[in-house]
Amino acid sequence: MVGKKVILLRWIWLLPAVLCTPVFAAEECYTAAATGGAVTFRVMQAGAPYTGTFRSFSGEVCFTQGRITRIDAALDPASVDTGLPELDAALKEKDFFALREYPRVTFVSTSVQSQGDTHTAHGTLEIKGNRREVEIVLRSQPADGKISVSGSLVLDRLQYGIGAGEWTNTKWLGAEVKLDIRATLSRKQ
């Protein structure tokens, strides 16, 4: 313990430099616009691919010199749109998203590696109270002063309790769910 304190003191002269860093390498944060994006999912039903969309999500992505430093995103499972109202209603119930207890799906990055316009984000995905470490590969592209971001993620719905009870039958409802993410980011005011 004494040793650690000594080391801290030895480096304390760096503190002003650390505090001033943002001045030299400012972090620019962007928010995902409500329009101009979607999160679509693809899952196998009775041996055939099925797709649906989540219309509402929000998020903040911070860049430092073109590299993503932080992603903090949330999705509203209540905005699910499969085109079949009956199915949308069923997806909000306890066997699937259990909206009353878990109104949001969240992703918070722990580390992001950026290489040009490709960003590999590691972070915690929380769905229905189940947290898992996941990797999401995103691509960013400047678009009219905004940034368009797209990426995808494959997950096992059973790890998150999506499709409980009889729906754990993966012959009829595939375990693998592919999410495609498209978002338009605007500079945070």
Binding site: A46, G47, A48, P49, Y50, G52, T82, G83, L84
Partner: peptide, 14 residues
């Protein structure tokens, strides 16, 4: 149109 494509008896995707 409903997006519920058919897989013929789990053998052939229609």
């Amino acid at each position: 149109a409903a997006g519920l494509s058919v897989n013929w008896f789990g053998i052939l995707l229609i």
